[in-house]
Computed example of a mutant assay.
Amino acid sequence: MATVTLKGNAINTVGELPKTGTKAPAFSLTATDLSTKSLSDFSGSRVVLNIFPSVDTGTCAQSVRQFNTEASELENTKVLCISKDLPFAQDRFCGAEGLDNVISLSDFKTGSFGKDYGVVFADGPLEGLLSRSVVVLNESGEVIYTEQVSETVDEPNYKAALEVLY
């Protein structure tokens, strides 16, 4: 279990992020077209997992915008924006914002992604949603960077996350 804060108040997750140097856990998530996407669909690419509570909050929306901008400059890299938002909300947001360099995926069906990656809030007002985190994978699907943002309302460290890809 990891402890982070929400506006200074401690909240816990169900586990810990995958360790650097390990193989990333497999997953099946729902895309905005309601198809199922799995980690193996991105095999051979570097992958940035931008994980957050809801695209309908300012910080989460900004992380999607920022990674969309950064992704356009990265070779052989896919940015997956993952939350428990319904695919319809994710699609609406990215369409309205003109964001086409990121792939929105939802963990709403089973919640297994959040459990397997240790990022589901176990308590507090966001219980059941995903903790703001970034996990970066190399082309072989190995974890090369992780960050679980210690204060949920803060943005992730974009620079540190992307430096491992240069």
Rank of each mutant, 00 (worst) to 15 (best):
58 G>A: 11
2 A>C: 06
122 A>G: 05
127 E>W: 06
30 T>A: 03
67 F>A: 12
76 N>L: 07
32 T>M: 08
103 I>N: 02
98 G>R: 07
147 E>D: 07
40 S>K: 12
49 L>K: 02
41 D>R: 00
126 L>K: 02
13 T>M: 09
87 P>N: 06
21 G>Y: 01
128 G>S: 06
20 T>V: 15
144 I>H: 06
69 T>P: 12
160 A>V: 07
78 K>H: 15
68 N>T: 08
150 S>P: 15
12 N>K: 13
158 Y>L: 12
59 T>S: 11
165 L>I: 00
114 G>A: 01
36 T>Q: 10
13 T>G: 06
61 A>V: 02
45 S>W: 02
113 F>K: 03
43 S>A: 10
35 S>Q: 10
161 A>K: 01
130 L>S: 06
9 N>K: 12
137 L>S: 08
88 F>V: 13
108 F>R: 10
94 C>D: 12
151 E>D: 13
162 L>N: 12
34 L>F: 15
102 V>Y: 00
54 S>W: 01
88 F>D: 14
133 S>G: 03
156 P>S: 03
119 V>S: 02
40 S>H: 04
148 Q>G: 11
163 E>C: 00
76 N>A: 12
74 L>I: 08
29 L>Y: 01
37 K>A: 10
126 L>H: 00
28 S>M: 09
127 E>S: 15
81 C>K: 10
150 S>D: 14
5 T>F: 01
158 Y>Q: 13
79 V>S: 12
100 D>L: 02
146 T>Y: 04
140 S>T: 05
163 E>A: 13
158 Y>P: 15
83 S>V: 04
118 G>S: 03
163 E>W: 03
4 V>H: 00
14 V>I: 13
136 V>I: 06
152 T>I: 07
98 G>S: 13
75 E>V: 11
69 T>K: 10
76 N>C: 09
110 T>K: 11
33 D>Q: 08
157 N>T: 07
112 S>Y: 07
164 V>R: 00
72 S>F: 02
152 T>H: 07
92 R>W: 07
23 K>Y: 08
12 N>G: 12
101 N>R: 06
105 L>H: 00
26 A>V: 12
124 G>H: 01
82 I>V: 14
7 K>S: 13
142 E>G: 11
67 F>E: 07
90 Q>V: 06
98 G>E: 09
69 T>C: 04
52 F>E: 03
129 L>K: 01
70 E>Q: 10
75 E>P: 15
99 L>Y: 02
47 V>I: 12
117 Y>S: 04
111 G>H: 04
163 E>Y: 03
93 F>I: 11
149 V>K: 03
66 Q>H: 09
115 K>H: 13
66 Q>K: 14
105 L>S: 03
